[in-house]
């Protein structure tokens, strides 16, 4: 108690790190592999199905993405998606359906604040930064490509 604050802070940080439980890396990785793999598998089935219906590769790809996004939005609305993500982790967050979940969940939640200043303003709270920096980096890469190709 009598030691200087900086030393107490350092000692405390050490104690916190010692007691803090480590994330179950193996379980999380296996979960991400299985759930991410399952989503990819469903995607492949959909792609084959749409191609079998006579769509071109590009069109079938777009139809597959749309279907996955729709399913993720539906499962979010039904309150199941967060339960799956608890086990799937990165496997359910990184693919395109994670993006859908990150837009539908604030949309549901901010409905109570109205459609314009609630849903409209908050829809991109989580997805927004992904879009901003995704578009920015695409733009920068395109610029570099333009000058240095």
């Amino acid at each position: 108690m009598t030691q200087p604050l900086e030393i107490r802070k350092k000692q405390y940080k050490k104690l916190v790190d010692e007691i803090k439980p480590r994330p179950p890396l193996v379980r999380n990785t296996v979960g991400a592999f299985i759930f991410g793999g399952l989503i990819a598998l469903i995607g492949q089935f959909l792609l084959n199905f749409f191609q079998g219906q006579g769509l071109s590769v590009n069109d079938a790809g777009a139809a597959t993405s749309s279907t996955l996004v729709f399913l993720a939005a539906l499962f979010t609305g039904l309150g199941i998606y967060d339960e799956i993500a608890k086990y799937g982790g990165a496997g359910t967050i990184v693919p395109i359906n994670g993006f859908a979940n990150s837009m539908v969940s604030p949309a549901m939640e901010y409905r109570t604040e109205g459609f314009v200043l609630g849903v409209g303003a908050r829809l991109f709270t989580i997805a927004g930064p992904v879009l901003v920096f995704g578009i920015l980096s695409a733009w920068l890469v395109a610029l570099l490509y333009h000058f240095f190709r």
């Binding site: 994330p23 967060d82 608890k86 982790g89 359910t92 979940n101 969940s105 939640e109």
Partner: peptide, 17 residues
């Protein structure tokens, strides 16, 4: 949750602590 962290239905893995 919605004031301090994420929307309730968002899929996140909460740390054990």
């Amino acid at each position: 949750e919605r004031q301090y962290r994420f929307p309730v239905e968002q899929g996140v893995q909460r740390p054990l602590y």
